[in-house]
């Protein structure tokens, strides 16, 4: 998969989500479902078997009325880089059905190869992976809207957010046709980013200083991509997962919920975990 053509600098696609702007409206969730042929069932109230590549968590500060605060946190796949391209989920997959693409930084999922052992799900601390417990069934007529760019998944395999990789492919195809090898920032945007009415999601190449994501998060690539911008954080950063989804919030309690902290540790001031969880 790691088709890094040597004329091109490796990309590192990522996201920054502004939690101050996110309204919890759910548009990103549905933008993703509609883009990626995500199936649905008659009862989706068991959230542990409901496929939502983009999931919205409701965080609270745990305080009683009227000091209560809440904040929504959208969670796509973090497209973890781990150490040197070994995300928690990729190194465990026995059949190489999920892979880290060094050219884009995207963690892929090959549905036709996955045999459904679910080891990757156990490995992912973000619950970003979903199993197809059921055959996907669309009611009469509804198959009409399915997109040919993303294959519907069969029962018994794992799926997850792909950073809308097919959009990257379509954009690259177009660029190739036009004799270009590089994409403009706007040419490859994920469906959720594009839909978000609040403009809370920014998507782009974290390696490209001209891209908004880089400007907002200012990732320190020398130190596992740790954000150097204030109020920007990542989820469970210290586990060494090296996620490419960054969050920002002006509220400390929100930032503090982004990671596990010992009581004496200050928000944001933690050493990154040893990144040798693979072999």
């Amino acid at each position: 998969m790691n088709k890094t053509h040597n004329t091109q600098k490796a990309k590192k696609y990522g996201m920054v989500i502004d939690l101050d702007k996110c309204t919890g409206c759910g548009a990103c969730m549905v933008a993703c479902m509609a883009e990626n042929n995500v199936p649905f069932k008659k009862d989706e109230t068991n959230k542990l078997d409901s496929i939502t590549w983009m999931h919205l968590y409701k965080l609270t500060n745990g305080k009683a009325f009227p000091e209560t605060e809440i904040c929504y946190l959208p969670r796509p796949c973090m497209h973890c880089e781990g150490a040197h391209g070994h995300p928690p989920c990729v190194s465990v997959c026995p059949a190489t059905a999920t892979d880290y693409d060094h050219g884009t930084g995207i963690v892929s999922q090959i549905y036709t190869r996955c045999f459904g052992c679910r080891y990757c799900m156990g490995a992912c601390p973000y619950h970003a992976r979903y199993f197809n417990w059921w055959d996907p069934v669309w009611p009469e007529g509804m198959k009409e809207y399915l997109s040919p760019n993303v294959s519907p998944r069969m029962r018994g395999v794992v799926e997850k957010c792909s950073f809308c990789f097919h959009r990257y492919q379509l954009a690259m195809d177009k660029a190739y046709h036009e004799g270009r090898k590089e994409l403009e920032e706007h040419e490859y945007q994920s469906s959720c980013t594009q839909a978000c009415p609040a403009g809370a999601i920014t998507f782009g190449d974290l390696n490209n200083p001209d891209h908004q994501v880089h400007k907002i998060a200012r990732p320190d690539n020398e130190h596992g991509g740790k954000p150097s911008a204030t109020n920007v954080f990542r989820l469970l950063e210290r586990l060494g997962t090296n996620p490419k989804v960054y969050y920002m919030s002006s509220r400390e309690w929100v930032r503090r919920l982004g990671d596990n902290y010992l009581p004496h540790e200050k928000t944001g001031e933690i050493a990154l975990g040893k990144q040798k969880g693979h072999h």
Partner: peptide
């Protein structure tokens, strides 16, 4: 989830 593909573990081994 896909018993008929179990052998991919050998064929596409990681």
């Amino acid at each position: 989830g896909q018993p008929l593909r179990s052998w991919f573990i050998f064929w596409h081994v990681n």
